[in-house]
Computed example of a mutant assay.
Amino acid sequence: MIQLYRPGASVVHRAPTGSKLAVLTVAALLLSLVPQTAGSIGVVLLAVSALYRVAGFPMRVLGSELWRIRWLVLVLGVALAVFFSPLIAWINTGRVVALLLLASLLTLTTRMADLLDALHRMLRPLRRLGVDADAVAMTLSLTITMIPVVAGFAEHVRDAHRARGVRPGVRAVIPLLVLALRHADDVSDALVARGIG
């Protein structure tokens, strides 16, 4: 499994994992449910960018995270602009970018073990309803972690196409899918080796 955590002593690193998860959840709900304007999305993106600085990361880390999701931003933004309007494209693409950057910041400032523990504690009351807290916690943590991992795979595929002088098109999805499935197999083998699942 790829470890995304970057050690640090910032306020964001020291914040309780449960609090960081709560902030991510609330941000996702607010961005999804509350109507946004072009100006408010700009403020949200600036605030998320500022959180990277508060976490003690240089701007190149934020730039690297943005670079990883550039194709998603481009495809989503262009599709929304063509089928709806540039304003809707800006607002909705901004929402997605803000959430992905927050999820990346969570994985950069939180150890996987801490993330699993926090998710497990939050889900423990659901055991009365027959929910397997361990399995759900592992699934959620892997999902959050996979966002930047798959974005990294997409970057590798694009770089490989560029190195060969091939124009990446729809066929670029196939090697990306192969890499993602291979990574999933590796993660599965690692979990089985540790007696999980």
Score class of each variant (00 low, 15 high):
I88Y: 05
T107Q: 01
L115W: 02
L76G: 04
V78P: 07
G130L: 13
G94F: 00
D132N: 14
A118P: 06
L99V: 13
F84P: 09
L76P: 03
S104Q: 05
G94D: 04
L102V: 07
T107H: 00
A79T: 15
L108F: 04
L101G: 05
R111A: 02
L106E: 00
T110G: 03
I91T: 01
A113M: 11
D134R: 12
A135H: 13
R127L: 08
L108T: 05
A118L: 10
N92Q: 14
W90V: 01
L87R: 06
V136Q: 10
A79C: 13
A135K: 10
A113I: 14
F84T: 14
T110K: 01
M122S: 06
A103W: 11
H120W: 13
R111I: 00
T109N: 04
P86E: 13
A137P: 01
L99M: 14
D117N: 13
L116R: 05
S104T: 05
V82D: 15
L119T: 09
G94R: 00
V96S: 07
N92C: 08
V78H: 14
R95G: 03
R128P: 07
T109G: 01
L116T: 02
L105E: 04
L123T: 06
M112C: 05
T110M: 03
L115Y: 01
M122I: 06
R95Y: 04
A113Y: 12
D114A: 13
L87F: 06
S85M: 10
A135I: 08
A135S: 12
V78F: 13
R124W: 07
L126S: 15
A103P: 06
F83L: 15
L87Y: 07
A81W: 06
H120T: 14
G94A: 11
F83K: 12
T93M: 02
D114T: 09
V131W: 09
L108D: 01
F83H: 13
V97G: 00
L80A: 04
S104N: 09
R121S: 13
L102P: 02
D134C: 06
T139S: 14
L102S: 05
D132F: 08
L123C: 07
L87A: 15
L80D: 03
D132M: 12
S104G: 15
L106M: 10
D114R: 05
G94E: 04
L106T: 00
L108S: 07
L119M: 15
L76E: 09
V78I: 15
I91L: 04
M138D: 07
L80E: 01
M112W: 03
R124I: 10
L126D: 11
A89N: 06
P86L: 10
A98P: 03
D114P: 05
L129K: 11
W90Y: 13
L80I: 03
A118V: 05
T107D: 01
L126Q: 12
A89F: 03
T109V: 10
F83C: 13
R128D: 06
V97Y: 00
M138T: 08
L100S: 04
